[in-house]
Each structure stands twice: as C-alpha cells, then as structure tokens.
Design a protein around this nucleic acid. Sequence first.
DNA 1: CGATGTCATGACATCGGTGTCATGACATCG
DNA 2: CGATGTCATGACACCGATGTCATGACATCG
Lengths: 352, 352
Amino acid sequence: MATIYDVANSAGVSPKTVSRVLNGDGPVGAKTREAVEKAMAELGYVPSNAARMMRSNRSGLIGLITGAISSSSMHTEVSGLPDTLILQGIQQVLGDSGMTLMIADTGGDREKVAPLMRTFLQHRVEGLLYVADYHREVQPRLAGAGVPVVLANCYDTKGTPAIVPDDEAGQRALVTRLIEAGHRRIGFLTLDASMRAAALRHAGYRAAFDAAGLPIDDALVVEAQAQGAEDNASRLEEAVDRLLALRPRPTVICTGNDAMAMQLYGVLRSRGIRVPEDISVAGFDDHRVIAETLYPPLTTAVLPYLDIGRRAARRLLGLIAEADPDTANPVLVPGPVAWRSSVTDLTQSSPK
Amino acid sequence: MATIYDVANSAGVSPKTVSRVLNGDGPVGAKTREAVEKAMAELGYVPSNAARMMRSNRSGLIGLITGAISSSSMHTEVSGLPDTLILQGIQQVLGDSGMTLMIADTGGDREKVAPLMRTFLQHRVEGLLYVADYHREVQPRLAGAGVPVVLANCYDTKGTPAIVPDDEAGQRALVTRLIEAGHRRIGFLTLDASMRAAALRHAGYRAAFDAAGLPIDDALVVEAQAQGAEDNASRLEEAVDRLLALRPRPTVICTGNDAMAMQLYGVLRSRGIRVPEDISVAGFDDHRVIAETLYPPLTTAVLPYLDIGRRAARRLLGLIAEADPDTANPVLVPGPVAWRSSVTDLTQSSPK
DNA sequence: CGATGTCATGACATCGGTGTCATGACATCG
DNA sequence: CGATGTCATGACACCGATGTCATGACATCG
C-alpha cells in the first residue's frame, strides 16, 4: 500500500506538502497541488489512520457493546422489538458525524465484556455505547475507562448517561386513545412483572384511567407471561379466558407486546371471537413485521428504538465534545401511538 | 493514557522489555516480569493498536458494509428474516478469531459505498464483508481494493466469493416433507417473481414433485406479492381465494415467507377455514417471532442466516490467511425444515 | 581455565503520518 | 532601495509500539 512518501516522491515534493494537500492546512501552490493529487490518484493512495492517530490522538472510532445481537434468537420468550433498530439510529447519526462504529457482541456472556472493552481501548475508541436488548437496569462495569459512555435502552444506578423508552407515557397515550374511542373495560395482558417495562406500562395504564377520572378494575390486568417459563402459550390462553369470563366483558385487550397480540389473535379466533368486531386488540412495540402484517393490522404503541439510537449517539458525540446539555438522566424518549384497524371506535358505531 | 515508556520507567526497565512481557516473545526474568506487570496494572496501561499496527501492518479489523440495517424498516413489503441474524453469525466467528468488526451502513444509498470504503481502507481493514438484506445479485464495486471481499446473502457476476442460502433445496425439502405427509394438492403463494428467491423456491417446489414422480398443476402456484405495490394485502386475499376455488382444493398452502403465512392465517380464518384442521399452512424463513408465536406454530423452511454469517466470516478469514479451500462459488447454504403443528399429517388421520 | 553458548536486557531504527520551525523567493511599503 | 511581510515549501522531530542487533553476565564444556 502506497505511503505519503511514495506520493511525495512521485510528485517531486516533500511528504509535508502532500500532507498539506490532504488536510487543506497551510498554503499550497496550484501547480503543486495538481501534481500531488495526480500522484495520489495514480498510486491509489489512502492515508493510514493509524499513523495519523499517533499524533492526533483522535481515532474517529466509537465502540458499541451489546448482548443484543446474539441474544435475539436465544430467548424467544422475550420477543420484543429487534434491538437492531437502535443500531440503525446510532449508525445514522454517527455516519453523518464521520465517526466509525466498532461493534462487539458479548453473546450474552457477561464475562466477555472486559476483554471486549480492552480491545476497544486498544483501538482508542473515543466513546462507548452499551445497548441492551430490552429496557432494564445494567451494571456494565465499563465506566471509569476514561472514555465517555452512553447507555441505550438501559440505565444504571451510577448516573451514567442513559437513553430509555418512556414506557409509561406510551401506554398512557395508548389507553387514553382507547378511552377516547369509547372503551371503558380495557383488559391488559402484561409482560413478566420482573421486567421494568411491565411496571412502567402498568403505571401508564392506571395513569390514563386516573386522568380520565375513571375507576380501575384490577381484575382486568393479568400477567400473561413468565420469563424462563416454557409454556407461555398456554399461560396466555388461561389469561385470555380469565379476561373473557369477566362481566361486563372487556371491549378491548391490550398486550405487553406485539408478539403477544399476535398470539392473542389466534386464541381469540379459536374461541370464535372476531377482531375487531367482537373485541378490539392493541399491542406495544410497533414491531412492523407483526403490526402491519397481522390481519387486521394492529393498533400499538410505538417503541421508539430508532429515536433512542439517534439520541444515544448524539448524546455521546456531545460528551466527546465535552458539551452535554442534557441534564435529566435517564432521558425518556416518548413514542406515538400507531392507530390501525384492530381497534373499533365505539363512539362511531353507536353514537350517543 | 499511559504508554509503554511510562510502564518502562515505572518498572525500571526498557520499553523493549515491556514489549516482551506483553507479547511473550523473547526471554524475560521472573522478577522483571513481575515488576512490569505490576507497573502495567498500576498505570492501567493498554497498548495502542495504532502504534502496533504501524510496524506489523495488521489492523485486526474487518469492515462490514450493509444497506441492511437501515433498510429493514423502509421496505416493509420485503418483510423477510431480519438480516441482523447474519451479523450475529459473523460476530460469533470474528469474535473468536480476535478480529474486530467495523460496520458502516449505506442507508440504502448506493453513493455512500465509496466514501465508506475509503474510511475502511484508511483504517486498513484486512477484509471486507458485504451483507444484503435479501438474496440477490449486487454490483458492489468494492473489489480490487487490494483487500479480500466476501459477499453474504448476495452474489455478483465477477466471481467474488459469496455465501447465499440454498433456496431451492429448502423449498424442495419442505415440499418433499409435505408429500411424505400425504399432501398432493400443494398450493404455493409466491414472492414477487423478480426476486431471486422466488424463482429458486419455485424450482425447488417443482423438483420435489418431480422426485416423487407426481404431476404438477400450475394453477396451484400464484404470485401473491408485487414489489413496490401498496396493496399487497388485498392481492394476497385474491390469490388465496383463487386457490380455494380450485377443485380438488389444496390441502396445504405454502407461502413465500413467514410474514405472508401470518397474513394467510388471518385471511383463512376470516373465510371460516381452520388451520390446520381444514387446510395446512407452511412458510419460509423460520422467522422465529412469527413462526413460533403464531397459533398454531408454523411449519417452515429455515433460512439459515446465522449459518450464512458464520460461513461468510470463516471464508473471509480463510482468504485473509490466503487459504481458500472453497472452490464452489457462490456457496449454497442449506437449511432444515422446522416442522410445527400448522401442517396436518394426512397419513395419520386416514391410514391407507 | 579459556572458548563457546545461552539468557536477560537495552540501544536504536522504523512504521506513516503531522506539528514546529526554518528557509528562500517575491511582493509591498516607507 | 533596503526593510518587512507573505507565500510556498522542506527538514526534522515525534507519536507508541516492535524488529534487529549488540552487550554483559553466567553456565557449560573440552
């Protein structure tokens, strides 16, 4: 591979002059510049980042650690939105800023974090991102490496900058819309209670009722999933039957995520109940493949993974530039409601 | 950040000795080694890859270019298996080999490939991977950069090493299993005919009938998707109705992918047809979230993305080591059939 | 007991860029 | 016309590792 010396020789100038052409600092005569550029093109010269970095101490690299990539097919029970959407958002922002992303995957193995960190530090990354596969608390043990860190889709107790979804606001917005559509008996099949999202969304559900001045019937809320359990399918069936046995029967059922809504469609239909004519269904995540492809398409709260990724990247860039305007921590990212035809508007069908 | 000189000073030895401790080449006295290791620990020393690379010319980096990450939410009509599974496979292999992955995303913009390539070359990547979001031909214009390239989930006409799924074998294996289960009237809702996978799978479908010595009824094969079309949902409904009108009616319907199977479930149920009692359904992809969560769980041909990723990575490592045992190109990766309860075994229900 | 070999270690050059400073050629000004 | 300033360029050191070669201290052997 050609070096700056090769270019300098070929153009009959000093390496320093080539450097000036490359970086546009210092003055260069028009004729000289042309000769240098010709030589660079002929030799297919590409400057070495390594050499450059030795002086400048700027690697232009961002390290990204995740257990996300390899975990997605592992716990199929946690079939939330693909975390790679977060990567997308990160990529978009970093790409524009000229940074290059290095990714490493723990494969779900906590022990691998330390060596991966070491690899990143060897490459002198300027910042680190840690992405979790679902909203949760982490102790990533990667602070204090002398490099800014931002957590995405997770948070810790040490005040590390973090970006997480606003699960509560999402569920609240969704349920508020349901109430506006005339629904009063709103069933809720929740995720495993140990998940942070479960608690927050439940709180959002309650907040929507409170805000509307409506009473809450706790019988309408049923945990329909247990992490690590084998048979979540039958668990869901039981939960659905419990909701269907209530009187008055719920007019709509919210689920912990879109995958659960997909199962719910199947269970309801096997009971001869039509969606949305007999009962409405709403999900959470806006997992496109599911929500848009289901029949009928699913109304759901958007889990703003793309936006979380973007914000995490921007915040990291801010920290690297030593300007972090964000004071709140963690930053809560709200998502809109995706309104589709799985929910009947009761105010339309039977106008007061 | 501490350098090898800091460590050397602190331990009272020369930098070269520290280097020897680091790399385990050359002999080092036990006492000296201890002192050096203590100094490294105290200073939190991490060697600089940049400096190392200047001498060794080995960056330990692999570049990965994809339009996949950011495209997945764009074309929702091409809702195949998430390509990030390929990344997973790549990660697994590269992680074990001590290589670090740099990723860049074109965001679907062909113009961005060249600058991204340049960035990678500046970092002196030792190899390049190009990952496509679905099986297709590409002209990535990235060969000839003096760096080995492997294509994953795509191929070109220039003989660049490539790893692609064996769509034909997958469909053939699936249909063969269906035939073994007693099915003879096998409907097939295909992907947009312009997709490579569509043609290959159709060939596999026919091959299965040929191998079994059974006649093929072309009326059973209907294109149920058009790329870029807005209303693929109603297109699918029409296609399904056409199949259902055939006499004798198909006993099983294969779909172009799992997302289509999910829609098919909805359409069949809206027609009052039960799966699998009245008609069986089989998909393609083994998109876990769909196939395992659908009710009933979906029989499908596994699209071996994880394996494709692994093989692509291994092949690239082979090329870097200048040993490429693979002669066939592209390499076809077969996938098994995931047999689940969406298909009825007719030989069981009505033994001859 | 001197020649030879092994071990442990260090001095020095080198990789490919860039920052600092110096230098020569002109243009401008008082 | 000499002093000063600007422009274009190059010499040289340096960033942090590692390869090459040299060196001194011992151990081993004939």
